[in-house]
Design a protein around this nucleic acid. Structure first.
Length: 196
DNA sequence: TAGAGGATTGAT
DNA sequence: TCAATCCTCTAC
């Protein structure tokens, strides 16, 4: 394991971290089975905007992990069906996080395909709800450090800024004008992004 | 304590 | 276009 240091996560610019995470490698070892993938799509969330569960620094039982130190996992259940994985950033008290929306599989593809009940590996990690299932991530990892033996993020490829597309986030129409913030980032031309 | 709705997905 | 599915949050 060669996990990114806490200093990577404990920074004050969540959009910068979201951009920096594109090209990094997310690794899980669950029940002795290792799976990993290149991060190709992310979204940033901050207590300062309405798209975020912690808007206005409102802390609840669900989102309290976001109020802790950067470098931990925030995992929650969406629509009662899908687990979504976020990376908590910034210092304690400043609730910010980066949602990992899509991966390009690197290792453990057979394990992922089994978990996904898939006959081929096409698009098995192209979406926030899919990649958590493929990597075996669920709410038992909520609050876990990203320097644990089960879940961590490593250096991957250096992605030039011009290869990162900046656009608006998906599925947060309820956020009003904040839904138009250019806080979604993805690797230009990568076939594993969740949608164009 | 009841009721509404969601940072999605896959099938119709 | 729509149902699945259940946890969380809000209002009463």
């Amino acid at each position: 394991m060669n996990a990114l240091p806490d200093s990577f996560y404990v920074r004050s610019d969540v959009t910068r971290i979201a951009k920096d995470l594109v090209g990094k490698v997310l690794v899980s070892t669950i029940n002795g089975q290792t799976t990993s993938g290149l991060i190709v799509e992310t979204e940033a969330y901050s207590y300062q905007e309405r798209g975020c569960h912690a808007f206005n620094s409102r802390m609840t039982e669900r989102n309290q992990v976001m109020f802790g130190a950067g470098g931990h996992a925030y995992v929650y259940l969406c629509y009662g069906v899908h687990h979504l994985f976020n990376v908590v950033t910034n210092v304690p008290g400043k609730a910010e996080a980066v949602l990992i929306r899509a991966l390009q599989p690197l290792t453990g593809e057979p394990v992922m395909m089994t978990r996904m009940n898939a006959v081929n590996q096409s698009r098995i990690t192209s979406g926030p709800g899919k990649l958590t299932k493929a990597l075996g991530i669920d709410r038992t990892l909520n609050g876990a450090t990203l320097r644990s033996s089960e879940l961590w993020i490593e250096m991957g490829e250096q992605v030039p800024l011009k290869s990162i597309v900046v656009t608006t986030r998906i599925g947060i129409d309820y956020a009003g004008k904040d839904a138009r913030l250019p806080w979604r980032f993805y690797w230009r031309g990568n076939e594993w992004i969740s949608r164009p």
